[in-house]
Design a protein around this nucleic acid. Structure first.
Lengths: 123, 123
DNA sequence: CTGAATCCTCAAGGATACTG
DNA sequence: CAGTATCCTTGAGGATTCAG
């Protein structure tokens, strides 16, 4: 069942595979929202503010699929579902935080460079 | 000329802005290709293998615009253009490397989790 | 050699309505 | 409450052609 009859060249570079999935519009935000504690669906909706149910659902599923998030369904009425980081999810946030810190520090400069560039080479 | 008449809410989060631009298909690859040394356009084409002129051009321009890469034009015949990392570009690669290392280490597990998930919840 | 301009395709993102 | 199904729009990615 391993189904590795032949090596494919789809993902020559792990970081690309990871970034392709986590580098979308919401994944990182969701992971960060879940970092302090497990949260329910509608709570995530509220905290993320401008995300739609559709996108949150898709994002959570992808994160669950790749093993960043664990989904727990409580057989209650009304339904309750909690999402929490897996150890892999927490592990991922560590190096990611360095990057976030870098972005915080350099963002102003980037925006300035961008503006300068745009001004000297308009439309 | 500052053109900051009003504060906009476009980029509430620096990391999102950075990832939106660097998290595309080629930017990171280009930065890594430029890390050891400055390189010419067609050299980058060759090293990246499956990138088109179009995309390489766009990617380089975006990276130049955001201040990761410096572009040097030599007034020669035939034209020669070299790209090299700026200090910001090199600086960026530092935290990025932690992430790359993380991806290398966890990629196999992610792929496995993904496959397992797909098998238990097919089409 | 280095790119810009044009055109095309496909999938990410999203609004909305429906379901268990 | 927590989703899924459907439909739509936009833009990233890419092949090709033209230009300096």
């Amino acid at each position: 069942m391993a189904s590795d009859a032949s090596i494919t060249f789809e993902q020559p570079c792990p970081i690309r595979d990871v970034l392709d999935r986590i580098g979308d519009k919401w994944s990182l935000l969701v992971l960060e929202a879940l970092e302090p504690e497990a949260k329910r669906f509608h709570i995530l909706m509220r905290e993320l503010g401008d995300i739609s149910k559709q996108m949150l659902s898709r994002t959570l599923r992808k994160l669950e699929q790749d093993g960043y998030v664990h989904r727990t369904v409580f057989a209650e009425v009304p339904p309750r579902v909690e999402y929490k980081l897996t150890s892999q999810g927490r592990s991922f946030l560590e190096p990611m935080k360095s990057l976030v810190a870098w972005a915080d520090k350099h963002h102003a400069g980037i925006v300035m460079a961008r503006d300068r560039f745009t001004e000297s080479a308009p439309a």
